[in-house]
Design a protein around this nucleic acid. Sequence first.
DNA 1: ACCTGAACACCGTTCAAGT
DNA 2: ACCTGAACACCGTTCAAGT
Lengths: 195, 195
Amino acid sequence: MAVLRADGLRKVTMRRLAQELDTGPASLYVYVRNTAELHAAVLDELLGTIGPVPAEGSWRERLERVLMAYTGMLFEHPSLARSALTAWPSGPHYLNLIETLLALLDEGGVPPAQAAWGVDLLLQQATATAAEHAGEDTSQDDWDALTGALRRVSDRTHPRIAALADDLLSGAHEARLSWRIQALITGIERTAVPQ
Amino acid sequence: MAVLRADGLRKVTMRRLAQELDTGPASLYVYVRNTAELHAAVLDELLGTIGPVPAEGSWRERLERVLMAYTGMLFEHPSLARSALTAWPSGPHYLNLIETLLALLDEGGVPPAQAAWGVDLLLQQATATAAEHAGEDTSQDDWDALTGALRRVSDRTHPRIAALADDLLSGAHEARLSWRIQALITGIERTAVPQ
DNA sequence: ACCTGAACACCGTTCAAGT
DNA sequence: ACCTGAACACCGTTCAAGT
């Protein structure tokens, strides 16, 4: 489908894609029911560009690499990252990603029921991290406002924040993302599902 | 500020809020620089409506209760849940929430540096869960498409999905959210930050 | 039968003009 | 000095009319 060509668009909207295709926006509704469905289709297409990660290293390392690649792809398509949280793809590439994650957790000896719920959690976290940084120019201002507020806090009213301000703000993106993924995996490994 | 009145709006947009205030949309730019800043302000206001959670139970139980209350509040304001991921508030109520979470993790003996990075992870997860369900009517269709795709998968190409289809789809919202929070806490407890 | 032009109902943001 | 009407540049979606 022509959805392929949407990858190149800076912002994937009905009207821009239609223009790219030299037609009116109404024409797209023949192939797709609404914008959410369009985004899901483009997303699945992009998932196909990731490719398999190298098989070296432990299952944990490979799991982290897959999730990093997924997050990195979304980083490069900020306008899609935001909708990825709500517009779930159900195409072949998304299914392959789920299968890969389940296989790696199985290799690590994670009980199947926990792995099933864990995949959700891992993908949600990766998607949310990409979406957070998709806030274009304004998110920098928000960040500045928040760091300022954290540093100005009184240690009488907010003792923990005052003590930990540096820790709250420390760490490069990659280091934090890596830590998050490892914490998630450990939690998934050790938390039984109800019943 | 008049931002208070925005809570009642079904969708918080510049134009709707301006109409509510009997003026033109341009007037709001005196108080706020853009929509992200507006949403952050409304969000902080809403955070004030949560109120303190009962002090009974273990620190883990209380932590879960705080995060559930936060998620529940966002559930009731779907249009804000989506922007909550990118529009970070930096108001007093948000700072109180962070302080509360840090104090509970400290009570649980979680090393401070891990607690600091953990708060981020906990809030991100709660926000993302609320945002996921803010996809109005269309998310139901996405869900149907995904469940269909998962059940139709071949056990030759996707053995893990085929074996776990039921687990992938099982569980009520509350049970899954509760499991996620517990998994997160366990992961945060046990994962050291670099250096 | 299939496609789409044109219209409708929304948005955010800016800026010149008003008080 | 402070506020805002009106305009600009976008959106998604529908539906009647065209081929």
